[in-house]
Nucleic acid binder design. Structure first.
Length: 698
DNA sequence: TTAGTCCAATTTTTT
DNA sequence: ATTGGACTAA
């Protein structure tokens, strides 16, 4: 039951607003989630809507889980009935029901990024398109871009790249996916839009499921998601969206801030609410946040007021390298702990997941509990994908991709040619992977399929002796088919961690089955819950990317690697202005996660790609005054920096004989191997061998 | 035709 | 530093 006393006037207005489109512009820390949760509570207990007729849409699984648990906390068990999930998860729910209309079997599976890339590579190879001429990643991002815009293969604009027709490849890619009975992540969204657009009766069935739809982080919606919401809510118009244009960080996924800025135009007579009171951070943290974000143009001017005191001015320390950085950060974490802050109330945030390694090493060394959130997704690990493929075969819901994945893992003497043959046999047989394998078990396999006979027999034996679904253990199969043995042959340290992962998966399967989840539903979860381990570990420091941190808050926040090349990321520096603005918002998001204490760090040298780079402090913070950000240099001086960088310093203006004038962004390597990255005014950004570049200072 | 060895490319962020 | 891809020996 909600009580208005916990809310301020603006929040109450948003919570109690009636049945029409509502836009809630909520600054960082202004109680956004609290407001959504209370609005749902109000809809259920005061307005009498049934929980299961309310839909809340979020961008990450973590946010969906968080919303649900806060809701249960507020209104009790009713909260559990509210439908809450990511755009992708909700889409999959619809498609499981109506995929038939799109000529997909309802048992279709989702394809993950790795398999998608492999598929595109195969496609390009079969057409003899060299990766020099068309990089697979480029084709994928072009297709993704079309899908984000809501354009299917038949609606995409003609696009020629190096004489290659990209649209034609898009068509071929979709054909291949259909043949494999798979959809990629973007297809989930796009296909729901097509379903609702092309089949009015299905559309009205879907629409009638919900009375109210609420969307969190609305600034991150892309055009398909926008259409998705339009189609879903056009009748009842009960759409509530919450967002903050300063926290838009998914431009690379096609998100368009205009959706939140144009909300009133798209939904006439929408109610608008502004939450500007910040309950989270000390004044000095907000001051830094504002100083950073102010440099961005075209933003809704916002006046975030804090209800808390001044607090400490955020610190910035410059470290020698990434290990020095990790040690000093861990030192600060221990200090905070001594001040009574719990481990679970501290987070280390970084731009790129690979930065987690030194922190993991130092935290482990010092016996401090930590959890890495995100990173190499649990479900994208090789051994987990293998194990899941075996498990799917055992439960007869595997498809050809899964069968092909494990047919030679462990080695069974089936190489590339053999796999090709099996793939063809499978397609010609018109059977499911499991059905086909049954034939093989009966000795009816020919050629390379014969080599699968022992595995096929193992599976059917295990199926015939199992009393129930729960008896179909994964461990037994992996053991008896030789998978475990092959894994252990690959080296001690690696094998141990991979076995641990498989054990974690087994536990996860057991818990899920115990909760009465169907096998197919579990596979869906595994497909969408890329990272796994979403449940929080008690009493542990969190390590995660800045993207993952959105929507969360901690007493102590440390943002590591605040350097040009990392934050802003090199990629965005090459892209130009819009990218840079998004990077700045990313830093803003990070800063505003902190309640009490904030520390930024940068390093003078850092290992990347195996060799050394010498970054300069991020342009976002390098010119801020000491009153906003207190800088403390590291104690010991860098050893290697002196040699070249006294002459060639980042930020220096230089002239090149053919490229003209430019600015040095960074330097990597040393001696004759040293290379500099220079952004030229005309020629763009280049990486040059320092020895041959003949740069002169100007 | 397959398995093992060596070499190259490769890394932003999430579903 | 890791991982997939090409090359070569069997």
């Amino acid at each position: 039951m909600y009580s208005a006393s916990e809310l301020n006037a603006a929040q109450i207005q948003a919570v109690e607003a009636g049945d029409s489109p509502q836009l809630i512009l909520a600054g960082a820390g202004s109680g956004k989630t609290r407001t959504i949760v209370h609005r749902i509570g109000h809809l259920i207990s005061k307005r009498g809507f049934a929980p299961h007729r309310i839909l809340t849409v979020t961008f990450t699984n973590k946010a969906a889980a968080e919303l649900k648990s806060r809701l249960t906390g507020l209104i009790g068990d009713d909260g559990g009935g509210v439908v809450s999930g990511t755009f992708h998860a909700i889409s999959l729910r619809f498609l499981r029901r109506y995929a038939g209309h799109l000529d997909f079997p309802r048992s279709f599976q989702v394809i993950d990024a790795d398999d998608q890339k492999a598929l595109v590579k195969r496609l390009l190879k079969s057409r003899n398109i060299d990766s020099e001429k068309l990089h697979p990643g480029y084709l994928i991002s072009w297709i993704e871009h079309c899908k984000h815009e809501g354009l299917g293969a038949d609606e995409a604009p003609a696009q020629i790249w190096n004489n290659i027709d990209l649209r034609e490849l898009y068509v071929a890619y979709q054909d291949e996916l259909r043949r494999l009975e798979r959809m990629d992540f973007s297809d989930l969204l796009l296909n729901v839009v097509r379903l609702m657009r092309d089949f009015p009766d299905v559309a009205s069935l879907i629409r009638s499921q919900f009375d109210h739809v609420l969307v969190d982080e609305y600034q991150d919606t892309n055009p398909v998601q926008h259409q998705w919401l339009l189609l879903l809510c056009q009748e009842h118009r009960n759409l509530t969206v919450v967002g903050d244009d300063d926290q838009a960080i998914y431009g690379w996924r096609g998100a368009d801030v205009r959706h939140i800025l144009d909300f009133e135009r798209v939904w006439p007579n929408a109610g608008i609410h502004r939450l500007e009171e910040n309950y989270r951070s000390f004044e000095n943290i907000l001051k830094l946040a504002n100083a950073v974000i102010q440099a961005n143009p075209h933003r809704h001017e916002k006046a975030l007021r804090t209800t808390r005191g001044d607090g400490k001015v955020p610190d910035w320390i410059v470290c020698n390298d990434e290990y020095d950085e990790a040690r000093r950060i861990v030192g600060v974490l221990k200090q905070r702990r001594a001040h009574g802050v719990g481990w679970q109330d501290m987070a280390v945030l970084y731009r790129s997941n690979r930065q987690s390694l030194p922190f993991e090493a130092v935290l482990r060394e010092q016996d401090i509990p930590y959890q890495v959130i995100g990173g190499v997704g649990f479900f994208s690990r090789m051994e987990i994908k293998d194990a899941l493929a075996y498990w799917a075969l055992l439960h007869r819901c595997a498809d050809s991709l899964q069968l092909l994945r494990i047919c030679n893992t462990p080695k069974r003497g089936i190489g590339a040619k053999g796999q090709e043959a099996i793939s063809r046999m499978l397609a010609d047989s018109d059977l499911s992977a499991a059905g086909w394998l049954d034939q093989v078990a009966e000795g009816r396999g020919e050629g390379p399929a014969k080599k699968l006979e022992p595995l096929a027999q193992l599976i059917s034996e295990q199926r015939s002796t199992a009393m129930s679904c729960a008896d179909l253990g994964l461990g037994d199969l992996l053991e008896s088919c030789g998978y475990v043995e092959a894994l252990q042959a690959r080296g001690e340290i690696e094998a141990v961690s991979r076995m641990e992962n498989i054990r974690t998966l087994q536990d996860f399967i057991e818990t899920s089955m115990g909760e009465g989840l169907q096998v197919a539903d579990f596979m869906d979860q595994a497909a969408l819950l890329q990272s796994g381990e979403e449940q929080d570990v008690d009493e542990a420091v969190s390590l995660m990317s800045l993207h993952r941190a959105k929507g969360l808050e901690f007493d102590t926040v440390i943002i590591a690697g605040v350097e040009d090349g990392l934050l802003p990321h090199q990629r965005s520096l090459d892209e130009g202005e819009t990218g840079l603005h998004e990077e700045r918002r990313l830093l803003y998001v990070g800063i505003t996660r902190a309640r009490d204490y904030l520390l930024l760090t940068s390093a003078r040298m850092r290992r990347a790609f195996g060799d050394m780079v010498y970054p300069i402090p991020s342009r976002f913070i390098s010119r801020l005054g000491d009153d906003v950000l207190r800088r403390e240099a590291s104690v010991s001086q860098p050893q290697q920096e002196a040699s070249y960088s006294t002459q060639v310093q980042s930020g220096r203006r230089v002239r090149h004989p053919s490229f003209g004038e430019g600015v040095i962004l960074s330097m990597e390597g040393a001696g004759d191997a040293a290379r500099v990255t220079v952004r030229f005014q005309q020629a763009g950004t280049k990486r040059l061998m320092l020895k041959y570049a003949a740069l002169e200072e100007i």
